[in-house]
Simulated scan of single mutants.
Amino acid sequence: MSEVSPEPDGADGPGRADGPDGAAAAGPDGAAADLLLARAGDGAAFTRLLAPLRRELHAHCYRMLGSVHDADDALQEALLRAWRGIGRFEGRGSLRGWLYTVATRTCLDAAERRGRRALPVDLGPAAERVVLDGAPDTGTAWLGPYPTPGDPAGRYEQYEAVELAFVTALQQLPGNQRAALLLFDVLGFSAAEIAALMDTTPGSVNSALARARRRLASAGPGFEQRRTLRALGDARVRETVTAYRGALERGDADALVALLTADVTWSMPPLPHWYRGRDAVMAFARAVPLTRCPSWRTVPVEANSQPAVACYVGASADAVHTAWSVTVLDLAADGRIAALVSFLGAEHFAPFGLPGQLA
């Protein structure tokens, strides 16, 4: 069969117009027919087979690699490998399982080449004073935000287990433990299926799972953000996001401090320094975003199944505002902000479908 990729629709990442939301899902008979056609070299049939699975495969690649851009590259490479190998897929297992095999192995190769991603809070203690002119740390592979849909069904089902704390903790695990945990606990594969996927034994899979769970448990409290957001409800979450946007755009320090928990943290990758506690966070906010940045414009988005705000900065209120950061908010049970992670850089905006500038 041909070695040329059929370039399946939407293979570069989520949120494209040609993604699965715009493709009709084939029924069982149609899928079986498409599989026969794809094995014979029909690229269009291969694309139809991928359409219902592409988004979940992309989310899996992100969880494995911690970067939407790395996930784009890994998924594209996995789809190319799958296309080249589809003729050898005999259908003894599910196509979904086989594609996860290809995607996971591709991600393990990528993780071995690049290493683990991190956030500033993983690498050192909080700053003891405000750092005004810190240089970006370009030697660290930083975690990035992940765009997720705004509808509750997509947020809690299709994109479950991408909350920021969970993906950050995953990056601290060796690749085999990360893969085993995701495949078993998140995606529901059995130990025997994972063993076949990873070319090992069920006993080794169970051992990797146990080690991964112990390491995650020792990393800190459970990952409760999705449960907290559900308990708060969409209206309360929107209220906090709206209040945060208004405080930033008005430069209102009092309104901002009222939104923060006492032990709030704020980090800004690729800047290595970060702040802990309301006093430290507000000292930074008063010195930098509320003073040194003349004008802010904001757009509410959703990242990692959490509320987030895309921030643009301009020289004045009527000037063009340029993409600055995507800030992911972690909310406490009372609706206040417990953590802010501001991912600095215009490169984070395109995956959210956002422009680089606002007039």
Rank of each mutant, 00 (worst) to 15 (best):
R105Q: 14
R63E: 04
H60I: 13
C61A: 09
T47P: 01
T47E: 08
D72C: 10
A71V: 05
A82M: 04
S94H: 09
L119Q: 03
E56W: 01
R48H: 08
A59K: 03
R84M: 01
A111V: 01
E90Q: 08
L119I: 12
G93C: 05
T101V: 03
L119Y: 14
Y62C: 02
R55I: 00
A118P: 04
G91C: 11
L79N: 05
C107M: 10
R105T: 11
D72H: 15
D122M: 15
D73A: 13
L65S: 02
A110V: 07
A51K: 04
M64N: 07
G91M: 10
R116S: 15
L119P: 10
R81H: 13
G93W: 07
G97I: 06
R96W: 09
A71K: 04
R54Q: 10
H60E: 06
V102S: 09
R116Q: 13
T101H: 05
A51D: 14
R114E: 12
E112V: 14
R81D: 04
E112G: 09
T106R: 08
L65H: 00
E90L: 09
D122T: 15
Y100H: 08
T47G: 05
A111D: 02
L80C: 06
R96A: 12
R54A: 12
A82K: 03
V102L: 07
T106P: 03
L57H: 05
G91Y: 06
E90T: 08
A127D: 11
P52V: 03
R63V: 07
A71C: 12
L75V: 06
L53K: 11
R113T: 15
E128A: 10
R55A: 07
R55E: 10
D109K: 05
R116A: 15
G85A: 12
R81S: 06
E112L: 11
F46V: 00
V121Q: 15
V121S: 15
G115R: 05
R116T: 15
L123D: 11
V121N: 13
W98I: 08
R117W: 05
R48S: 08
P125C: 07
T101F: 00
G124S: 04
A59D: 03
A59C: 09
D72W: 08
R117H: 07
T104G: 04
E56R: 06
A127L: 02
R92C: 01
G66S: 02
L123E: 14
R63A: 05
R63Q: 14
Y100D: 01
R88C: 13
Q76D: 12
V121A: 15
G124H: 11
W83G: 08
D109P: 01
Q76R: 14
R114N: 12
P52K: 01
E112H: 09
L123Y: 07
A59I: 01
G85R: 13
L95F: 12
A59S: 08
R54L: 14
G124R: 13
A71M: 12
T47Q: 03
A74C: 13
L99M: 08
D122H: 14
L49H: 10
Y100S: 04
V121P: 11
P120G: 04
F46P: 04
G115S: 15
R55W: 03
V121K: 10
A82Q: 03
V121G: 09
E56L: 04
G115I: 06
R105P: 00
